[in-house]
Nucleic acid binder design. Structure first.
Lengths: 116, 116
DNA sequence: AAACTATGTCGTAAGTTTGCGTCATACTTC
DNA sequence: GAAGTATGACGCAAACTTACGACATAGTTT
């Protein structure tokens, strides 16, 4: 990789790829699921739930925060993370649009050959 | 990374992360979109459409093929790639389930603080 | 203010991804 | 069968990711 030629792809493609990358690690998927399962948005307990060192989890949290998928509110000593459901809904829409586009045509099925 | 502690995450989380990783590069998103836009599943023309060297595109294609998201049929000299719409539909379902789970609760909105 | 706790930042090491040129393979066509 | 074309495999270099310990910061408690 001399340099990433990201300029040549559409904003749409880059945006989708960026979010996909955020979900491209089991730990981050787990973090989002964990936050969703808690009514109150627990803070560093997240680290205790994962098989990773506290600092590593913190790093994953920063990554999700950088995309604004989660928010962190400082509450005295602890920090309180919670999902940005608003954004997640938008992202869901984006993914759905992409998948619908991709699955619209009837390409080659499980065994069928494509007719090139 | 001494080693990836993937064992500690659920199969579901790992599967989602694996697919997300496949979509985590604009080139691969573009490839899927391009294949979806073609009625016939064109082969190496894909390389011509992207701002990348032919071998690099081939590499991305192999990556998508490894997850079975696309299929390749050899037709004499050329190879004919096409989307595995069946699988893509399943993946779409998986993502939808994930996003619905994540957006179910009413966490902290745009400006609202969460009540920890 | 000293001890303690919850967090993030930094630096580092190992692993993975990306991009690309060169080469090998396999089919076509002359 | 020799020249030509479409592809994938291989190997390398640069960049990025992941994981984590040591340290810094900031609020709590005593």
């Amino acid at each position: 990789m001399t340099y990433a030629k990201t300029t040549a792809f559409t904003d749409e493609q880059q945006q989708l790829a960026r979010v996909a990358k955020a979900l491209a690690h089991p730990a981050r998927v787990a973090i989002i699921q964990f936050l969703a399962s808690q009514k109150t948005c627990i803070s560093g307990d997240i680290a205790a739930e994962l098989p990773l060192a506290r600092t590593t989890v913190s790093q994953h949290l920063q990554e999700l925060k950088a995309l604004d998928l989660i928010r962190g509110e400082i509450d005295g000593l602890t920090v309180c993370y919670c999902l940005n459901t608003e954004l997640l809904r938008q992202v869901h829409q984006q993914f759905t649009a992409f998948f619908l586009e991709a699955t619209a045509g009837e390409a080659c099925g499980p065994g069928e050959a494509c007719e090139c």
